[in-house]
Amino acid sequence: MSVDVDTVTRVARLARIAVTAEDAQRMTGELNAILGFVEQLGEVDVSGVEPMTSVIPMQMRRRDDAVTDGSKAADVVANAPATEENFFMVPKVIE
């Protein structure tokens, strides 16, 4: 399978990365080189094989559904580019 410029532009939109027409053109070539490389996986017979979910057989650890941490609003927003009174500031979302 290979991708065209339109697909690359659509994927960039899904990935929330602004691309120029020139970027999209270049990326199309790069992505096709990588997709061409991974194509060979199609020749592997995987009938009856389960997809891997965990490399080490283990049970997900559970914990009590209890509050163990918190009240750190100032720490949470400390690295944000724009904040006000411990809220994240973003451009207007709803008109």
Partner: peptide
Amino acid sequence: IMIGTYVLSAGYYDAYYVQAQKVRTL
């Protein structure tokens, strides 16, 4: 990110991602 977004996107998930995870089992 682009490759990852593409292989996980609708219609390609089984052909790429699930196939790769099966090969990983092998």
